[in-house]
Amino acid sequence: MSVSQTDFRAALLDPAKAAPLDLTDADSRPAGRRFDVYRNNVAVSLTEALYTGFPVITKLLGKQNMDGLAGIFLRQHPPSSPLMMHYGAAFPDFLANMEQLAHLGYLADTARLELAIRRAYHAADTDPMPAETLATLAPDQLLAATVTFAPAVQLIRSPWPIHDIWRFNTEPDAPKPRAQAQDVLITRPEFDPIPALLPPGGADWIDALVRGGRIGDAHDAVLANVPDFNLADPLALLLQGNAITSLSTERPPQ
């Protein structure tokens, strides 16, 4: 008689199942509550990992609702690796697909923002571009340049005011969220990720640069949709955030 790890795991994640029969106390009686210690350790530790990873979602939903959702999520999506720093990557989509949360449309994108902040926190270290680099470039050289970003840089675009929601739930005295779409740039100047609200067109411009586009071409493309776009604003955010590791002014082959 033996208990396979398949049986153990199935009973671990299903509280309705009895503990496997060959697990006992010291007097060979069924394990009962003793097996529940493991059930509880797994459920509580994974739920706490979600609290830690999604503090704003936990605050928005309340602990009781979060516990209920976490209980469903952790059974559908147990961690796929022992790196708990990455746990919950599937949580935003899970929230988006929960019918009873359909009236809280902003939740999934707010969770995406929290996940992106966590990714930025653990991203590889890089040296930022030297501050004097920009001053050495003529304007036409700058416009022709392409950009390499630090791995910590993250861009989250949403039809919801996710930056306002995030601030309102993490900063004292932050203003109430406005009803508007918001795009957020996350940078990590040193060790703490900073989510910054991008002006209209800013996310399109950065997205084009991430795809390897030149600064001037990306700017012209944005201007076609956002006539008052000024690249100085998102560029300042990138520079303050140590988001650019290098500029390349090499001309692409003709």
């Binding site: 790890q5 398949t6 153990f8 795991r9 671990l12 493991y38 350790n41 797994v42 530790s45 994974l46 990992a49 147990p78 961690p79 796929s80 690796s81 022992p82 708990m84």
Partner: peptide, 12 residues
């Protein structure tokens, strides 16, 4: 702690 590529975050 891992079975069928699921990590259960406890020492079993």
């Amino acid at each position: 702690s891992t079975h069928d590529s699921a990590f259960l975050n406890d020492l079993l």
